[in-house]
């Protein structure tokens, strides 16, 4: 087994294990910390697949920025118990089982159709190639429109939260 393969299994196991912790236990702060572990392990898998740029973005955006806000809110509100909806929860359980079945079907169909073995040769996910693709005519306008959308959302959030600056 090559070094890459060993590392892949280590990080894949870490990602799966911590993802189970996220949904499995009831303390919201533990779940948040476990989700950070999941995201970092996924980032390591991206790195092993030869796309360091995506790997780093995964950490910067999700593990670094979004999860900090999650934790911030959890700690500020001192949430210690999971809020559970009143009632028997039969509808919830049925929904969960249904969605779980859909997920299992999706994973199964991907596993059944995907080619086993190494990925396509010559695949290049370096920063330069990602940037060239992103700023090529095919994606440029979509990319810029997305940034304007995010900026608008940002301004909106500030305007709503703070009426007098």
């Amino acid at each position: 087994m090559t070094l890459d393969a060993i590392l892949f299994y280590v990080f894949a196991a870490a990602a799966l294990g911590s993802a189970l912790v996220v949904v499995g236990q009831r303390h919201p702060t533990y779940s948040a910390f476990a989700l950070i572990v999941t995201l970092c392990s996924l980032s390591a898998v991206f790195g092993l697949l030869g796309s360091p740029f995506i790997a780093v973005l995964q950490v910067v955006v999700y593990a670094g920025a979004i999860m900090v806000l999650f934790l911030f809110v959890l700690m500020l509100l001192r949430v210690t118990r999971e809020e559970r909806p009143a009632g028997g929860g039969w509808a919830l359980k049925a929904t969960a089982i249904g969605l779980g079945a859909v997920l299992a079907a999706q994973v199964g169909s991907v596993l059944a159709t995907v080619a086993r073995g190494p990925g396509a040769p010559g695949f290049n996910a370096s920063t330069v190639s990602v940037a060239r693709l992103l700023f090529s005519p095919a994606y440029l306008y979509v990319f810029e429109a997305t940034s304007i959308l995010i900026l608008a959302a940002l301004v909106g959030a500030v305007a709503l939260a703070k009426r007098d600056l």
Binding site: C40, A55, L57, V59, V60, G64, A65, V68, T127
Partner: peptide
């Protein structure tokens, strides 16, 4: 690393935890 500076940014964002 090809993404050295970004890696630093990622690590500094994890430092807060």
């Amino acid at each position: 690393l090809d993404v050295g500076v970004l890696f630093l940014f990622a690590i500094s964002s994890l430092g807060v935890y």
